[in-house]
Design a protein around this nucleic acid. Structure first.
Lengths: 258, 258
DNA sequence: CGCGTTGTTGAAATTCCTCAAGAATAGTGG
DNA sequence: CCACTATTCTTGAGGAATTTCAACAACGCG
């Protein structure tokens, strides 16, 4: 579908990489594993020694309560890193699992160190971590203060933008969302039943259309207006906003490789 | 109240700093501003050129919806950095304001660069960012999947641990929470009225006691059990867990200063 | 002392959940 | 390719949690 690797597309929304950066990235993402849907990638309490990067398919971070209820705390789309923090924190405080069949790149500590040796790439990894954080804040706002139908709409808007960014949305604003309504419920802090009704609402309002696992956003502006979606928290204008100029000067932010 | 600076206490829960590290930190935190309660520190959409660090008092990050409803997405306690991401992201996607009277250290870009020149301190700053992220995930779980009374209890447990960590909890598990119930509501995705009733519940169960702005946790284990609190997400055992050994080797993670 | 903010309580309304059951879809083995 | 099974989707009805509205008390501050 896209002629470029998703991780390069993603990092380039922030930083202008040169050919050497891209080659290094491609080279370090050679080790690939394939997983089926609903398999664990890393589990809470463990101290994993590798970093995963989604090449294709969807995965998620989640937490489980004692009573078995689950909260998904992050969607991992193609181009997203799963666990960049691995080398700082002692152990994972959440689980990571696939939602669909996935292809994942597996990066060792050496790989990450090598990537961090390139200032632009290092900065892009930092950026990626900070955007993840910004998404968490927006999700908190979403669950905490928006009504159920707005929550669903907002999540769809976010996925639309994030997937578009890695070339996975067709020109008519259609993308595949191979995720069950139960998983959406666990993401939005709702029940399956209610998610189902809210999706129906959005359909009845002709904001979206669904066939199989394909979601078409019929009225992008309408959907965004409906839930008050503003894309600023995704910080997708790094490379375009002139921030790029800082990079020459900003080797200060490269992580040192010895 | 405490004989040590809160930022040093906090960073030392993760890394064992040496005297040089501590001196540098103290030196770079000399520029102090004082703010009254409910004043803005930084606003959404701006690109601030300094980093703030809370020395005393409480502040918060928050987001506002078009209809005026607010979601607090983070508590900033003494020792917490407000905006370490400033030099990477183009503009802030949320606001930061004081909740109480505050003393804040103001750090310039040079200060941060200098701090990052010390591997242990740099790693501790990384750690601090990642813990903030872990807290966001836990809050998402809290709001998404716990009942209202459990949410309140969980927040109190978290504050107890975080404040204890910087020496602000007395031996009888009492701390000051100079925060209105309205602000708690905006934190927990509830209404003032309901927060009020939930606090009453916790009091009726003799889990906590409140006098003025003082909160006493009467039954720490009971409170934690009630809401299923597990402190693992705060990652407070960095320095103790032997992870410290890695530090010698881990200059790779220092951010380079030129 | 008076005024604005915060805390507290009641009652009604609403959102969202639970329970339950049937329909559609996808996956599996024969 | 079909039958069978499990998962997912869909809808209804009743119930619970939370909100809204409203009023008043308590507290803190000038």
């Amino acid at each position: 579908m896209s002629d470029r690797d998703p991780f390069i597309l993603k990092l380039e929304t922030f930083a202008t990489l040169d050919e050497g950066d891209r080659d290094l990235l491609r080279d370090r993402c050679r080790r690939v594993v394939s997983l089926r849907a609903k398999e664990e990638i890393v589990q809470e309490g463990t101290d994993p020694q590798v970093v995963h990067l989604v090449l294709s398919g969807y995965a998620c971070r989640y937490k489980i309560l004692a009573d078995g209820s689950r909260q998904i705390v992050g969607f991992l789309l193609p181009g997203d890193f799963c666990d960049l923090h691995v080398f700082i924190l002692d152990e994972l405080d959440h689980n990571i699992a696939t939602l669909t069949d996935c292809r994942l790149a597996v990066l060792s500590r050496d790989d990450i160190t090598a990537l961090c040796g390139r200032p632009r790439v290092a900065r892009a990894l930092w950026w990626s971590t900070l955007v993840d954080q910004a998404i968490l804040r927006e999700w908190l706002l979403n669950i905490g203060r928006r009504s159920a139908d707005e929550r669903v709409a907002h999540l769809l808007c976010e996925l639309l933008e994030r997937l578009r960014n890695v070339g996975l949305v067709s020109t008519d604003n259609t993308f595949t969302l191979p995720v069950t309504q139960g998983e959406l419920a666990d993401t939005l802090g709702l029940t399956v039943v209610h998610v189902n009704r809210m999706i129906r609402n959005l359909r009845d309002m002709s904001l979206i259309a669904i066939s199989g696992r394909q979601i078409s956003v019929r009225d992008v502006d309408g959907l965004k207006r409906f839930c008050g979606f503003r894309a600023n928290y995704l910080h997708m204008d790094g490379a375009r906003s002139g921030r790029d100029d800082l990079l020459a000067e900003s080797e200060a932010f490269a992580m040192r490789v010895d």
